[in-house]
Design a protein around this nucleic acid. Structure first.
Lengths: 192, 192
DNA sequence: CTTGCCTATGCAACTCGTTGCATAGAAGGA
DNA sequence: TCCTTCTATGCAACGAGTTGCATAGGCAAG
C-alpha cells in the first residue's frame, strides 16, 4: 500500500519516467521497497488519475518517447498526511529462518552451501553500501555540510549498513551451528 | 510460496489444527513468517489434497470439532527438497525507510512521535525474546545439553534478538537525526 | 439476560504482486 | 546478416494475501 508513497518520494527526489523509476527501484530505493515495472506503470496511471502526479510526454530521437512524471501538490499533501499515520509493524517474511528450523528434520549439513552463498550476497551488498557511503557522504563528519535531505538519506543508508553487518555476524553464527551439528552427527559414528 | 514449508515445519515440531497453527503464527513462528487464518486454512486443504499432510477429525466436548493435521512422508520429502533449493534474497519492504526519506519534503519533526512509538514496539519485542531465551534455553552454555532441533531454534532466536538490538540502536540514530533537524529548523529562526 | 469473547472453520470479494508475452526502433557484436 | 541487448510501455492471466462476513456452541462478566 505504500508503493504510491515510495514512488512519490522518488519523484520528489528527481522526476522520471516509469522506466527510470523501475531502474531506480532495482538500485537505491529498491533496497527498502522493491517493485517490478508492471506495478510501477499501473500505480503511476492510478496516481495520475488521482492528480498525485503530472505526466509530460517527452519525444526522444533514437529511442521511444517517454512520459516523465513529477509529483503534484495533491501528492505532496498525501505524503504529508501519510507521514502522520501510525507506522505499522513490518510483516516479516524471513525464509532463511524457516529453513533453519526445517533443517532439524533433515540433514543440517544440506543447508550449509546455500547459507554460504547467501552470506556472500550480503557481504557484497555491505561492500556496495560502504562504497556508496564514501562516494555520496564524504563530508558527513563536518557539521552543517549536509542538507536535511542528505542527512536523512544518510541515516537510512546507515541502517542498511548496520543491518548487513548484523546479518553477516548472524550468518556466521548459523554456519558455526550447522557445522557443529554436521560434525557431531558424523564424528561419533562409524566414520565411513 | 514458502507458507507451505513454514506450516510443514510447524506441524513437524507439533501437530495441530488450522486454528492452532494460526495462533502459533501469531506468536513464535509468525515473527519470521506471518499468515492469517484464511491463508492457513486454504493452504492446509491444498496440502492435504497433495498428500503433504494428513488430517484427523477430533471431536471435543464443550467446543467445536477440529481437524488435527500432521506432516506426511511426501511433505517431509518436499521439505527436504526445498532445503536444497537456492535461497533467494529477501524482498525488502521497509516502510520506515521510505517515510524517513519522505520527511525531507515535509516537517521532519512530524515523524518523531511515530518513530518513538515504533521504537517502543521493538523494545518490547526484544524483552520478550530475551525472556523466551531464558525460559527455553537456560542450558545453552552447557555443551551437549540441547538437541539439534533446540540448537537450531536457538540460533534463529539469537538472530531475532540481534535484529532487535540493531534496530533499536538505529532508531536512536534516526531520532537523534530527526531531532537535530527539527532544532536546526526552529532555533535560528524567529524563535516564535 | 444480554453482550462480548473464545474456539473452530469457512465463503466471497477484493487488492496486491508476479510472470509471460507483445510491440518497436536503435545499437552493437558474431 | 542475424542475434541479442537496451529503451520504453503495456495487456492478460494468474497467484498470493487481506478483509469482511457467517456460523455456532460455550463461557464469563456486567
Amino acid at each position: 500500500m505504500a508503493l504510491e508513497h515510495a514512488i512519490l518520494v522518488s519523484l520528489l527526489e528527481r522526476p522520471g519516467s516509469g522506466y527510470e523509476l523501475a531502474r531506480r527501484f532495482d538500485r537505491s530505493i529498491g533496497r527498502f521497497w522493491s517493485a517490478t515495472h508492471q506495478q510501477i506503470y499501473r500505480v503511476l496511471r492510478r496516481m495520475e488519475a488521482d492528480g498525485w502526479v503530472r505526466a509530460e510526454e517527452v519525444a526522444q530521437d533514437g529511442r521511444p518517447d517517454k512520459k516523465v512524471y513529477s509529483a503534484a501538490p495533491p501528492g505532496r499533501d498525501a505524503l504529508a498526511a501519510w507521514l502522520r499515520e501510525p507506522v505499522e509493524p513490518e510483516t516479516v517474511r524471513h525464509e532463511l529462518a524457516v529453513r533453519i528450523r526445517a533443517a532439524a528434520f533433515d540433514d543440517p549439513a544440506a543447508l550449509i552451501p546455500e547459507v554460504e552463498r547467501h552470506r556472500e550476497g550480503h557481504a557484497a551488498l555491505l561492500a556496495r553500501y560502504l562504497h556508496g557511503e564514501q562516494r555520496d557522504f564524504p563530508a558527513a563528519a563536518t557539521p552543517g555540510a549536509l542538507d536535511a535531505g542528505e542527512r536523512l538519506q544518510h541515516v537510512v543508508l546507515r541502517g542498511g549498513i548496520e543491518y548487513e553487518r548484523m546479518t553477516l555476524a548472524w550468518l556466521d553464527d548459523v554456519l558455526a551451528t550447522l557445522r557443529e551439528l554436521a560434525d557431531g552427527r558424523d564424528a561419533p559414528g562409524a566414520g565411513h
